[in-house]
Write a protein that binds this DNA or RNA. Structure first.
Lengths: 346, 346
DNA sequence: CCCGGTAGTTGAATCGTTTCAACAACCGAC
DNA sequence: GTCGGTTGTTGAAACGATTCAACTACCGGG
């Protein structure tokens, strides 16, 4: 019935082993030469008592919390966060393997987003941050750079700032997807993209442009619809594309998010067409339900667990004061081919 | 370029305000009567210096971390966690409003699940836990009960153990859903359920039984298929139901999870039937894509943000040593009616 | 035989708070 | 004028670890 944590302190271990508390500390941290006999006695005493050093006391003295902060936005109902589960799990797993933990906190995307970060720094609760859903000129990044506080981002910001990040290579991903459509024989390929203001959207769109350029196919401006990240917008975009005259109308469409791809497929159904047979559709994200849609959606799967692992490992190296061998890491997504992408009229 | 947290300590504030550190502490915590003049001087000094008390030092002395631990399982790819995002956000938000934070960690569902919990207790990193995805005779609950450490669960365990929890009332939810189907004129209603070993599954199934009993409709055993929580299993279950002779075949089916409901709808498509027209389908969870399926899926939405809020508030009261007015809270899910549930032949 | 260096160990200072015990100053009551 | 009680303030002792400086023993080299 010990309400509060262990009553066993380093002093108890020292007493039992018949040594000073300094010796116990040295043994446990292997931070000084200790004779084999003493070492064994200390370890035995610690084990028998079930001793675990207090994280608070250690942190106070050593000026570290062995904790990493992570914050994410709350999204409106259908802008859900399909990957938080795996991302967070992967980060927690990696951190724990190195004796660290993850503290999750909230921040307001508008207003002063860095305030929550500042608070955690000043109270000494965290040794570093993981950022995600970064945007161009992200104020949190500017703040952390100014302060010189360790952090690693999942996502890029702009070309001027020099900071460590890991990102999924949306450009390469979409390029792969479009090349897949080209290989199936498609020549008129549409793109449902985000507004130009979205950095991630620009990278993904660039992949579309690259693939068509490599294939010597000029991009018909009518093939590109820029709209917001909702199912309704994706649906409307597809209706716009369908309204093109038959000889200009795309036979395949790549949507830069699954949510918009779902909208596109629903628009096809409304028009009495079958995705994957009449018009091919490809998405991006590979959300869990993608495989159960009718037809199952071809999509790009982000290596999200890998991102979580890399991001934490980089941050830990940074905290240890090491130079990072790679400060900017791009990981390719994997194209998962399903029935929504078929040949031009197959 | 302060790498580590604030260099400003309580001593700096005391010096600037011309008082002792004890006085500063009393002012900031309002834990002793202090004259208005001194109070003002201290607050001014603290504000000018941007002072924030060290969480580590405070925690060490006060024997508390103001941190709550939360752990969840990693699931296989299509057993995803549709609600982690909102649940965690809601918990973090509520905790922060009371000066607490959430520490996320991993534990192995098999082996010794309590080990990760024990470690956090012994190192004094957390003041209490939130548990989710509890199962019958959950070993973590048994461990925490034995130890007398504060925790609140999202989910129930068994009737013998007395511990505080919040849960979604699956029984009432499914009952509402079936009553909705009855009101539409359905009389032969099937149920795709989980194995009897699942506690949550038993509650949801009971709601189905209740509704039919209240309507004086005897349950035909052939209407009930118990199977696992996958799309493939849901699909197979629906094919089984469809193979019944027309006069016994259900005109509506309630699946106790959306994933199985998706499988059921896909089975209907495979059989050339239209969900919501030929056979009504209802799910449970209201996953984000439910609204975009064809047809959109009627489902039960869990008040997940409310659960997160309640769970944290209860835990904080427990940590303060208060008696809980309600130790067992059941929140009803809300039926979201969409096109997948139509009249018998409408 | 003396000296320098290393291995092994320890006492004590320190990290930045909270909080106890002590005390001064003042007030009103008798 | 003395006494008891409150109000306001402070010095110092914790909390439980890390780590510096100091010390002892011992060994080998000159």
């Amino acid at each position: 019935m010990t309400k509060k944590g262990s009553e066993v302190t380093i002093r108890d271990v020292a007493r039992r082993a018949g040594v000073s508390i300094a010796t116990v500390s040295y043994v446990l941290n292997e931070s000084a030469p200790i004779s084999e006999a003493t070492r064994r006695r200390v370890l035995a005493a610690a084990a028998e008592l079930g001793y675990r050093p207090s994280a608070l006391a250690r942190g106070l003295r050593a000026r570290e919390s062995r904790t990493l902060g992570y914050s994410w936005h709350q999204r409106p109902p259908d802008y859900w966060h399909p990957i938080l589960d795996r991302f967070l799990y992967s980060m927690a797993e990696t951190a724990e393997a190195h004796g660290y933990h993850i503290l999750t906190f909230t921040h307001s995307p508008h207003g002063r987003p860095w305030e929550a970060y500042e608070d955690l720094i000043l109270t000494g609760r965290v040794d570093g941050f993981i950022l995600s859903e970064t945007n161009e000129n992200d104020e949190r990044i500017r703040y952390l750079l100014d302060r010189g506080f360790p952090f690693v981002a999942f996502g890029r910001a702009n070309d001027e700032w020099d900071f460590p990040y890991v990102d999924v290579d949306g450009e390469a991903g979409v390029q792969t997807a479009v090349e897949h459509l080209l290989a199936l024989g498609h020549r008129r390929i549409g793109c449902i993209a985000w507004p130009e203001t979205s950095l991630t959207g620009r990278y993904r769109y660039q992949g579309y442009v690259n693939a068509l350029e490599n294939a010597d196919i000029p991009v018909d401006p009518a093939w590109v619809v820029r709209t917001e990240h909702t199912e309704a917008a994706g649906r409307a975009a597809m209706h716009t594309l369908l309204s093109l005259p038959p000889e200009r109308r795309p036979t395949a469409v790549v949507a830069i998010s699954d949510l918009m791809a779902i909208g596109a497929m629903n628009a096809l159904h409304e028009a009495g067409l079958t995705p994957g047979e009449d018009i091919a559709v490809v998405g991006f994200d590979d959300i869990p339900t993608a495989q159960y849609l009718r037809p199952p959606l071809t999509s790009l799967r982000q290596p999200i667990a890998e991102v979580g692992k890399r991001v934490v490992e980089m941050l830990l190296a940074l905290i240890r004061g090491e130079e990072l061998p790679e400060r900017r890491v791009l990981l390719p997504p994997r194209l998962i081919v399903r029935a929504s992408s078929g040949g031009p009229k197959a």
